[in-house]
Design a binder for these strands. Structure first.
Lengths: 343, 343
DNA sequence: CTGAAAGCGCTAACAT
DNA sequence: ATGTTAGCGCTTTCAG
């Protein structure tokens, strides 16, 4: 087992000191071009790569950022949201030459071990945490440490956190206005869990939009748990109220709602106009294609990485909230090919 | 900015040396119980956590394993496969108290930078590589290094690699036999890309099963690229051959095929009996529910981690191939509620 | 059972 | 522009 090459070895072979090699490795400009050439040649021919842990220890920076997702893990990827978020974050870390550590946890056993792992010094430079359900213990915990973090989604209390979110409220409001503009008069709502901020924001936004249009949901309100099955059940129940339109707070639940509508022998969009939220399922997945409020999840992920980096390097110091706009994509399920209602 | 606590500090407060603290942190049995108590108390009250990088450097082991997925990244999560794999691997690392580094790359720019990042010493203890397309350059590269790795899927040449795969061939064969047993006589095939080993294995298995049943696909063969759209197009084309059954090499493509069948005014399963491969989409996603050959992706991921750990610690030394069985789940799309045909 | 001491490979002052 | 030196915080012989 031959020993791994280190800076000293490279230096010896190139006839320079360890520091000089370090400088060329780190692209320090204070190296004479020819020296640099020589060192680079040795590095190339030996296939030398600096040792990440040693570097982290000495520089106090690991170049890895953590992404923490707490959710019912088994069903995590049934919803396209998290995959997209991971994609965005991965894109963000790649473009910064950083590496991504993914922490997924569901059950409590995982939770406590991951929480402590996440704050281990010398492991990650900072973390991105998803604010799925309200009262996320990890966020509280993080506030007490000096680990830089940004939250994706709206944290419970806006104070003292960096976060990037989408305009859930505005998007849901636009959905309401669109449905109203279509002439629907008995709108229903299948909300997302009210223990999530995205859930309450979307609900409030929808009700707000309805009110502006002089409409109301009355008893036509259901709530799902993000799953397709829950959307189906909620819709099946709602059918008794004979709604002529429904806003479903996620694509995934909307797929279930669509199924319930068809199983009841009704037609979407003719009998019920449907608008969902997310814009993440491929349109061709469903018949009819879903009209939905699309949120730029991948951008959110990328942006979260940038924000986190600025927090880490001290560029950003005062809590900053970035909010991405959402946009209604009108397809088939709402029964209109018109653009969204003017706001 | 107060300095971070280290072993020395804890030792001082507990009246022992740095080494002793290290021993209790690492659960070394050679510590007198009361000493241990005392040290643990100090650790608890100070909230001390060992520095990961320092530990990695000294012990030459990072406790992180890498998962490398090369694929058209944008569409990565459209297929449920990768999400499930990540879930499995994450479960595996969690249960070992390790952390997961995720390397996703699509374009070439990412590729070369990630390839070199992956083999950086002191970053990960080993990596799991997905063998998506044949001739994966990363695998070749890894062979030349001393970085432990295991591949998920069947590598091009079985020689000298550890891998975990599923019985693609056997599963596809079972699908063929089932379709034949149902009395279908004009089977068609929508294959997965022939530049992937899973693709060729499934194709061969299906043809093999057909042959055993005295059937053949003749010209009824299409090939998709794993995407739903490609499944739809392939099916649309195949319809001209009037097949009465079709085996689609992935769930995702099957959803597209279903759409094409419906758009042609035909009924599945009445006119065309369909069996797909994967078993990953929630049954209720489609109407009819997909009958498909299910592969235990999550288990595969978990197992890959265990296998990798054993190669890292030297327990496994001779190339080992673990193959998980696949199983036909009969639902609605094949038009039968019978069990799979006897083999 | 515990302590002392020697690194692990690198970065970052500081000198020259 | 380059070399010297002192750590970063931990593990790990080796003594005792």
């Amino acid at each position: 087992m031959k020993r791994r090459l280190n800076l000293e070895d490279i230096g010896r072979r190139a006839g320079v000191s360890r520091s000089t090699v370090s400088r060329v490795v780190n692209a320090d400009p204070h190296v004479r071009p020819e020296t640099k050439k020589r060192v680079e040649a040795v590095i190339a021919e030996t296939g030398y790569r600096p040792h990440a842990a040693a570097r982290s220890l000495a520089s106090n920076s690991t170049g890895v950022i953590g992404l923490v997702i707490s959710s019912a893990v088994e069903t995590l990827f049934d919803d396209p949201y998290f995959g997209r978020l991971i994609l965005g974050v991965s894109g963000g870390t790649n473009e910064g030459g950083m590496t991504l550590a993914l922490f997924l946890f569901g059950d409590q056993a995982d939770a406590s071990s991951i929480i402590s792992r996440v704050v281990t010094p010398g492991l990650v430079d900072g973390v991105i945490v998803t604010a799925t359900t309200r009262g996320n213990p990890l966020i509280d915990h993080l506030q007490g440490t000096d680990m830089p973090f940004v939250v994706v989604g709206r944290p419970d209390s806006a104070r003292s956190t960096f976060c990037v979110d989408v305009d859930n409220r505005g998007g849901a409001r636009a959905a309401a206005l669109h449905l109203a503009a279509l002439g629907r008069r008995r709108p229903a709502l299948i909300a997302a869990p009210s223990n999530t901020n995205a859930g309450v924001d979307r609900r409030n936004g929808f009700l707000e939009g309805l009110a502006e249009a002089g409409l109301s949901v009355e008893d036509r309100v259901g709530e799902g748990d993000w799953s397709q099955g829950s959307g189906r059940e909620a819709m099946a129940l709602l059918l008794a109220e004979r709604p002529d339109a429904v806003f479903v707070a996620s694509d995934r639940m909307a797929v279930g709602a669509l199924r319930a509508i068809r199983e009841a022998g009704l037609d979407c969009p003719r009998d019920i106009s449907l608008v969902s939220f997310d814009g993440l399922v491929p349109p061709d997945l469903t018949m009819p294609r879903l009209s939905s409020v699309v949120q730029p999840v991948t951008e959110v992920g990328k942006r979260a990485v940038r924000l986190l980096r600025s927090v880490i390097d001290g560029t950003s110091t005062t809590p900053e909230h970035v909010v991405f706009p959402t946009e209604l994509a009108v397809r088939e399920s709402c029964g209109s090919t018109l653009g969204p209602a003017a706001t």
